[in-house]
């Protein structure tokens, strides 16, 4: 984050904890602006002594901040605490496509989330 200092609890941008995300689609369905795009696929996990398990593996997680209205509904809707507000705010772009942030960016912002954030 650069520029003017803001409180750590600011609603600057949305961070994603990919390890916590189960690709459940709830945030994408609850988002009033349709700005969360998620792709995932199924994989079967074989573990000794256990029956085969199907898990969802995340392929794409993108938020279009050109559409987002910072309502926070996705963060509240996530049952797995995978989405958080991060204070970073200077993400202006020169064209609309630049406002779409993929999982690489969303994951990076996780380091800015203040500790103890629900």
């Amino acid at each position: 984050m650069t520029g003017y200092p803001v409180p750590a609890s600011s609603r600057g941008i949305i961070a994603l904890d990919e390890n916590a995300c189960t690709s459940c689609m709830l945030c994408a369905r609850e988002c009033p602006d349709w700005c969360i795009e998620i792709d995932s696929h199924k994989e079967t996990v074989l573990e000794e002594g256990a029956r085969p398990r199907v898990v969802h593996v995340l392929d794409r997680f993108a938020i279009d901040f050109g559409l987002c209205m910072w309502c926070g509904i996705c963060i509240e809707a996530c049952p797995f605490d995978a989405l958080f507000w991060a204070p970073s705010y200077d993400h202006a772009a020169t064209e609309p496509a630049g406002m779409v942030h993929e999982r690489f960016d969303l994951r990076q912002w996780l380091s800015e989330v203040p500790p103890g954030t629900p």
Partner: peptide, 16 residues
């Protein structure tokens, strides 16, 4: 919304 594909139409474990 009639013109665009809803991102929530996919189920967990699905892509476009």
């Amino acid at each position: 919304r009639e013109a665009r594909q809803w991102p929530g139409a996919k189920d967990p474990g699905e892509s476009d």
